[in-house]
């Protein structure tokens, strides 16, 4: 793994005003680094701000606090040309394969959109490039002139991947790319995504709530809870030692595909519900469900600290 830093997020926040209710801190002080060529898995339950973070990184939202730098430069300080270059280098694959393709465009048009915008490959070469991309994602050339409604979910996701690949990006943010697909197709798509990484040397931010999946594919994993990173570690290290009680609870929920072992598996059941993310007070946001919660957790919000080299956790009791 090369050590070139692609993305650096420094206490990034994205807040939404909710009418008559207050402020929803969807992303609240997230700091992350993404290196070239790595796959960073981002896991967390629904509504914890994973997607908002991804969308902020591709500039669909502007972050309210903190700074996102790409190759050392703030992404909101780009001039027009640098901005276009950023959009070419940072791509995203969306969650819902049924909404992510324009129903009026045939596959060829959808895939070629990035080529048109960035004026890559002219005339006949562009058609050739589209055909090459179709082959790369495992589709046939005959599919080029069909409309999205003729495809299955898995095939549409392949088209979405081809569209992102078309502009030769350096990093692809995968926003739950397989959660809308059924399991057999999930495997195909994940294999495709991983093969492309080997062949082209892409980096990924892989957003998902599927823990067994993220273990398979990630170099490092970040666990997110209510808008903040609670644990960040190399994949192997995270599965061997986890310091944050939320991570422990999550990992204990992974079913094991062996009935004998599965029977003996102990689950940590969390009591209580996710607190209302609107108007969170100070202190640790996990304390309402944490088995270790103490007085200190109410007063002081734990910061990410390095427990062992490369392994960070945000818990007062982590050692």
């Amino acid at each position: 793994m090369a050590d070139q830093v692609l993305f650096e997020l420094k206490s990034v926040s994205k807040h939404f005003q909710v009418k008559n209710a207050g402020v929803l801190k969807a992303v609240n002080g997230v700091s992350l680094t993404i290196y070239k060529g790595e796959t960073l898995g981002l896991v967390g339950e629904s509504g914890c701000g994973k997607t908002t973070l991804g969308h902020t990184m591709v500039k669909l939202y502007k972050n309210d606090g903190g700074m996102i730098t790409y190759k050392g430069r703030d992404i909101w300080d780009f001039n027009r040309r640098q901005n276009m270059n950023y959009h070419k280098n940072v791509q995203i694959i969306y969650q819902d394969p049924y909404a992510s393709l324009n129903p009026l465009h045939v596959v060829r048009q959808s895939i070629a959109e990035g080529l048109e915008i960035h004026k890559l490959y002219k005339g006949k070469k562009r058609t050739e490039r589209v055909m090459e991309l179709l082959r790369m994602v495992g589709l046939n050339q005959e599919h080029a002139n069909r409309f999205p409604h003729e495809f299955s979910g898995g095939q549409r996701q392949r088209i979405g991947i081809a569209r992102a690949l078309a502009v030769e990006p350096e990093i692809i943010i995968c926003d739950e790319p397989v959660s809308a697909l059924d399991v057999s197709i999930q495997a195909q798509i994940v294999n495709l995504i991983m093969r492309l990484q080997r062949e082209i040397g892409l980096s990924y931010l892989f957003i998902t709530h599927d823990l067994s999946l993220v273990k398979q594919i990630s170099d490092r994993i970040a666990v997110m809870y209510l808008g903040a990173i609670v644990e960040l570690a190399p994949a192997q290290s995270l599965y061997e030692h986890h310091y944050h009680p939320y991570t422990s609870a999550l990992l204990s929920a992974i079913p094991i595909p062996d009935p004998e072992v599965e029977k003996k598996r102990k689950r940590i059941m969390l009591s209580g519900d996710v607190p209302n993310p609107i108007n969170l007070g100070g202190g640790c946001s996990f304390r309402s469900r944490c088995p270790k919660a103490a007085k200190r957790c109410e007063l002081e919000c734990p910061q990410l600290k390095e427990i062992t080299p490369g392994h960070f956790a945000a818990c007062h009791f982590a050692e």
Binding site: Q91, Y94, Q95, N102, L104, S110, I117
Partner: peptide
């Protein structure tokens, strides 16, 4: 709010392109 419009935005499409290629035709 549909994802194909966001996808176009993340590809760096101009507002005119999004309005005339994606929104109005639909």
């Amino acid at each position: 709010a549909r994802e194909f419009v966001m996808a176009s935005k993340t590809l760096g499409a101009s507002p005119a392109r999004i309005i005339f290629r994606h929104l109005l035709p639909n």
